[in-house]
């Protein structure tokens, strides 16, 4: 038996304490938010909305639902594909920026950087980048630049840089470092020892993790559409507000298909690596 178990200071296990606190916090939350169960009952029109929305799931639109379609509008399915394409373009663009910046910051935040001060500064930058949601970055950039696809790309790239840099620095610290030591001992510069001694053995894990983040970037890019950028979320929101639920489902199915394809790919990748 684990000796720690014998002199356990609490009559219940730590897990028990945590489970109990979670349940208690849940109840406190309901009171703190002054929630009432009556508000859970949908109002008269609400049930009708839900019924229409979910019955539309069985018959997604293959053409515009509106009676009046402006001249020159592409066929509906082509427009859906275009929205998906733009969603992927935003995500890929943001990810390629985030990978480059994440590599640099990740190196500076890892023990390879060689200076505790640099490491600390890099970690602070990472924490700041990570702790603001991409949509809030987008709102800030909208105010700073006005609406522009490039601001959506930077908005995604910043928090993703933070997350990638954090994981990269951990992977780099865990990577076997004998080659880097040997290179340093032979007089190689710190940067080269990093590039040729440490980086190569961490690359497969880093690639697997980056691909997983690409999947997340696709979701984020889709969601940015709800706030005015022309990704698929934009069309979902517009069709929803026009009560064109069949169109909403076509967009949703397209989005779900793309997300699931990425998810299965990256799940297969992660199975091979412990990320």
């Amino acid at each position: 038996m684990d000796p720690r178990e014998l002199k356990r200071p609490l009559p219940v296990s730590r897990r028990g304490v945590v489970l109990f606190s979670i349940a208690a916090l849940g109840i406190i939350a309901a009171f703190a938010l002054e929630l009432s169960p009556q508000d859970l009952a949908p109002h008269a029109g609400g049930v009708e909305i839900a019924r229409e929305f979910f019955s539309a799931a069985l018959s997604p639109a293959i053409d515009y639902e509106a009676e009046f379609v402006p001249d020159g509008a592409p066929p509906f399915l082509i427009r859906t594909l275009g929205a998906i394409r733009r969603t992927l373009v935003f995500a890929a663009f943001a990810m390629s920026l985030a990978i480059v910046a994440g590599l640099a910051l990740g190196f500076l935040a890892s023990s390879g950087s060689g200076s505790a001060t640099i490491q600390l500064i890099a970690r602070l930058i990472i924490a700041a980048a990570r702790s603001v949601h991409e949509l809030l970055w987008a709102v800030v950039f909208l105010a700073a630049f006005g609406i522009s696809p490039a601001s959506a790309v930077i908005a995604i790239a910043i928090p993703f840089t933070g997350v990638l840099a954090k994981i990269f620095s951990e992977l780099l610290d865990e990577a076997p470092d004998d080659a880097a030591y040997a290179l340093r001992a032979a007089g190689t510069s710190r940067l080269r020892a990093f590039l040729f001694g440490r980086l190569p053995s961490a690359i497969p894990d880093m690639a697997a993790y980056s691909f997983y983040r690409f999947e997340c970037a696709v979701r984020s890019s889709a969601v940015l559409g709800f706030f005015g950028f022309e990704t698929i979320g934009y069309y979902i929101k517009a069709s929803f507000e026009n009560l064109h639920y069949h169109e909403v489902w076509t967009y949703l199915y397209a989005l779900i298909a793309v997300v699931l394809a990425f998810e299965y790919w990256s799940a297969a990748l992660r199975k091979r690596f412990a990320v």
Binding site: M95, F214, W265
Partner: peptide, 26 residues
């Protein structure tokens, strides 16, 4: 991993070449 890297590189290249993200506009 290689296939994933190639796939991502394809997406990234396409994104850079497509006019959707009007970079100079910024």
């Amino acid at each position: 991993v290689r296939a994933s890297v190639v796939l991502f590189a394809f997406f990234a290249l396409y994104a850079f070449l497509s006019p959707d993200v009007a970079w100079s506009d910024l």
